[in-house]
Amino acid sequence: MAPLEAPVEKWTGKIRELKLGSGGRKTITVGGGTTLPFVKFEGAQPHRPAIAIEVQDKEPTDWSEFLVSAWGDALKNPGAWAKKAAEFGADLLYIRLASAHPEASNTGAAQAKKSASEVLSAVDLPVIFVGPDVAEKDNEVLVAVSDVAKGQRVGLGNCVEKNYKTIAATCMADGHVAIAKTPIEINLAKQLNILLSDVGLSPDSILMDPTTGALGYGLEYTYSVMERLRLAALMGDGMTSMPMICTAGEESWRQKESKATLDVPQAWGDNQERSLIWENVTAISLLAAGADILVLRHPKTVVTVKAALDKSF
């Protein structure tokens, strides 16, 4: 019979390539795709999605026992934690400067510099730093980190619609990448990219965080917004074509399906198995929707997702 003609879409756009890491630090490039995720018959995905592991600059107090036992004492020290994350196979690290939150330890620039230096000297992986998501504190600690990491092209976030100018400016000055975070909505994502570009930040230095909904907690919204962003980019929209980062681990481990260990309904099954699959399923379906960087928490999920990626490419 006649050979089947592949139903190729003629995309005019592509996902921007984004490089993290520089100045002696390992580099990683994500994006660059000219096709939908994992669809090979019509284009290329030159860089496979990357796995980031979340590290915090203070010991988390509300983490699941399964996470705590997997990480052990490393949780007490960001440098040690970063090192262990590298051993567990992270492509890059996602450092949450949680101690700066006014309701946590309310630390400031000095502590942020110290934590950042510890992480940066402990590992040579590319790094993303995010603040506590409180505007004033974010600006304070991220500007401090930017200075420490000058020339190493780290990610700094989160830029949000109400607070992006300071972080964008420091990214421009020190050659970093800005994380643009928006509520789960396609227009808001594009709008923030435009605002960041309008203040002079190169679109090639923006990583989008479309806000992750965990499995059972808005996953489908994130999923569709990401698919729409990807499609828009492939159709030639330069303001939606930034690579995307998803905090799948954080969101999935926040839910009661991953936290609860007491009075769990029988139908939920084994606590640890379920918690792991919850993070795993969240991560995999976001990959299918177009995630370029997944931020995970449990080392076993990292192994499963990396194995899936190995097979996919």
Partner: peptide
Amino acid sequence: DRHESSGTP
């Protein structure tokens, strides 16, 4: 306008 832009689907 310096952004290439087509509609979002």
